[in-house]
Design a protein around this nucleic acid. Structure first.
Lengths: 337, 337
DNA sequence: TTGAAAGCGATACCAT
DNA sequence: ATGGTATCGCTTTCAA
C-alpha cells in the first residue's frame, strides 16, 4: 500500500506538499496540485487514517455500546447515532455483546483505546459510581436509556413510570375495571418502573390489580405466550392487559385468541415501545411509543457538544422523554357490565 | 490522556518495558510488572490503538458496508458479522448510507483508509469491474448478496431464482392454478430473479401468469398494500400470491382481508426472506428463509481466510445458498373447482 | 509556493 | 530482565 512518501518521491516533491494537496490545504500551485493528484491516483494512494488520528489527535468515529443488533430496539438506537454521525462524516464504531458489568466495561474501554471522543452508551449493569467516574475521564460520553442524578446532563432517558400511568389512564378511559399485567423478569429497572406507574395510577383511581394477575416472562414473543397462558390458568377474568413490550404483547394476543378470546372485543391489550412489529401485527397494536431513534440522535448531538466542551444544562435539550400513546386496534371500549 | 512515556517516567523504567507489561510480553520480572501495572492504573493509562495499528500494521476491526440499520435484514447481516468479529476480538466499523455508486465507493474507501483488512460489503450499485478491481487491492474483501463470476471465491450469495421456483412448486403442490405476483420496483437484480424463477416454474408445469396480475411497489408494508389494491382492481381472480418480501406480503394480506378475502382459505400468500416479522404476523407467514445472519458469518470467516492469504476454492465453503421453504399459516390447499 | 524536520504513541530489534 | 532507538504514516510549524 503506497504511502505519502511514495507519492512524494515519485512526484518529485516533499511529503509536506503531498499532505497539503491531500487535505486541500492552502497555498499549493494548481500545477503541482494536479501533478500530485495524478500520482496519487496512479498509485491508488489512500491516506492512513490511523497515522492521521495519531498526529491530529482527532477522532473521526462515533462509538456505540449496545447489547446486540438483532433486537430492533437497539438497531434503531444504532441507526439514530449513525444518522447524525454521518452528518458529521464520522463512522460508527460498534461495541456489542454486553451481558455483564465486565463486558460493558470492556466495550467502553475498547472505544477509549481507539480514542473515540464521542460515545453513546447503553449500560444497564455498570454502577452509577463507575459511570460517573468514566464520564469525568471522557467528556463526550453520553448515556441513553438511563438516568443518573449526578450526571443528569449526560443522560437521555425515558420516563417509564409515566408510561405505565399513561397506559392505565387509557384503559381506564375505555371503561375497563379488571386488569392484568405481563412484565419481564429480566433487566433491572424498566419493567419495574412501568409496572409501578401502571399500578399507582390504578390505585389513584380506586382500582386494584390482583397480584396473581401479574405474570413475568422472557421479554419476547414466546415469553408473552407463556405469560398469557399463566394468566389464563388463574381462571380469573380480566378485560384489559398491560404488557411490558410489544413482542410479548403480540405473543400474548396470539395465546388469547387461541383460547377463544377476541382482541380487543373481549380483552384489550396494550404494549410498550412501538417497534416496527406493532404496525405489522394483526390486530395492529395499541402501544406506547418509545422514540429511541430520535433520542439516540439527540444523545449523539449532546455527546458532540460535550466533547466540544460546550456547557450543557440538563434541561437544555430534552433529556427526559415521555412515551406517547399510539392508539391502534388492540384496545377498545369495554361494554361489559 | 497519559501516554506510555508518562507511565515509563513515573515508574522509572523504559517505554520498552512498559510496552512489555502492557502486552503481557515475555521476560519481565514479576516485580516490575506489578510496579508498572499499578502506575498504569493510577494514571488511568489506556494504550492508543491508533499508534499500535500504525506500527504493527494490523487492524483490529471488521468493516461492514450496508445501506442502513433500520431494515431488519441488514441488521441481521451486521449482527452476523459482529458475531464472528467478536470471536476474534475485533470491533465493527460500520459504513452506511449508500444509495448511489458514489456513496458505496466512498463507504469502502473510508474503511480502506482506516486500514481495515477485513470487509464484508453489500453493494448493489457498483459495477462488476469496479468490484473486481477493488478486490485485487484488498485481499480481505468479500461481497454478500451478490455474485460475480470472475471473483466467485469472494461472493456469498443466495439463489433468488431457485427461491422463486420453490415458491411456485409449493403453490402448485397445494393445487393452485391461478396466480398473482407482487414484485419490487427497486434494486437491480433480486426482484427480477425471484419473479423469473417463479414464472419459469409455472411455465414448466403448463401454467401461466397473467401479466396484469404482476404488480410492483415499494418494498415495504405500504408498498404491499398498494400493490394488492392494484391487483384487486384488475377484477381478475387468483388464489395464490407470491410476494417479493415479507413486509410487502404482510401489507398485501392486510389489504386482502380488508376487502373480504380470507388468507389462506380464499387466497394463499407466500413471502420471501423470513425476517422476524413473518413470525409475528397473523396469520403467520409462509415464506422462504434467507439465512442472512449465517451467510454473514460465513462471509466474515471467508474474508479472514482471504486476508490471511489462504487459498479459497469457490466451492470450499457454501458460497451459494438456497432459500428454504418455511411453511406457516398463510398458504393452504386450494379446494375450489 | 515549497521543503526540512520534529513529533504523535506505540512496537520491536539490538544491545547490554 | 531491561533499555536505547529506529520506525510506522502523517501533520504542522518554521525557514527558505
Amino acid at each position: 500500500m503506497a504511502t505519502i512518501k511514495d507519492v512524494a518521491r515519485i512526484a518529485g516533491v516533499s511529503v509536506a506538499t503531498v499532505s497539503r494537496v491531500a487535505n486541500n490545504g492552502p497555498k499549493v500551485s494548481q500545477k503541482t496540485k494536479d501533478k500530485v493528484a495524478k500520482i496519487m491516483l496512479d498509485l491508488g494512494y489512500s491516506p492512513n487514517a490511523n497515522a492521521r488520528a495519531l498526529v491530529t489527535q482527532k477522532s473521526t468515529t462515533v462509538g456505540v455500546v449496545i447489547p446486540d443488533l438483532t433486537d430492533p430496539f437497539f438497531a434503531s438506537l444504532a441507526n439514530g447515532v449513525d444518522k447524525v454521525a454521518r452528518q458529521e462524516s464520522r463512522q460508527l464504531l460498534l461495541s456489542t455483546g454486553m451481558v455483564s458489568a465486565d463486558s460493558e466495561r470492556q466495550a467502553i474501554n475498547l472505544l477509549l483505546e481507539r480514542r473515540c471522543d464521542i460515545m453513546v452508551v447503553h449500560s444497564k449493569k455498570l454502577s452509577d459510581d463507575e459511570l460517573i467516574t468514566l464520564s469525568q475521564k471522557i467528556p463526550g460520553l453520553v448515556f441513553i436509556d438511563r438516568y443518573i442524578e449526578a450526571i443528569a446532563e449526560r443522560c437521555i432517558w425515558l420516563d417509564n413510570t409515566e408510561g405505565g400511568k399513561i397506559a392505565a389512564r387509557h384503559l381506564l378511559a375505555l371503561n375497563h375495571t379488571s386488569f392484568a399485567c405481563i412484565s419481564s423478569q429480566y433487566q433491572i429497572e424498566d419493567p419495574g418502573l412501568r409496572l409501578q406507574g401502571f399500578q399507582s395510577e390504578l390505585d389513584a383511581s380506586g382500582h386494584q390489580l390482583d397480584p396473581t394477575l401479574i405474570q413475568y416472562g422472557e421479554p419476547d414473543l414466546q415469553g408473552g405466550e407463556v405469560a398469557a397462558q399463566n394468566l389464563l390458568a388463574t381462571g380469573k377474568p380480566f378485560s384489559a392487559l398491560f404488557v411490558y413490550n410489544d413482542a410479548m404483547a403480540i405473543g400474548a394476543i396470539s395465546t388469547l385468541e387461541d383460547n377463544g378470546f377476541k382482541v380487543p372485543s373481549d380483552i384489550s391489550v396494550i404494549g410498550f415501545d412501538d417497534v416496527l412489529l406493532s404496525r405489522y401485527s394483526n390486530p395492529k397494536l395499541t402501544t406506547l411509543n418509545y422514540p429511541v431513534e430520535k433520542m439516540a440522535m439527540l444523545a449523539t448531538k449532546l455527546a458532540m457538544k460535550l466533547a466540544n466542551d460546550e456547557f450543557v444544562n440538563s434541561n437544555d435539550t430534552h433529556h427526559k422523554h415521555v412515551p406517547r400513546l399510539v392508539k391502534r386496534e388492540s384496545t377498545s371500549f369495554n361494554k361489559s357490565l
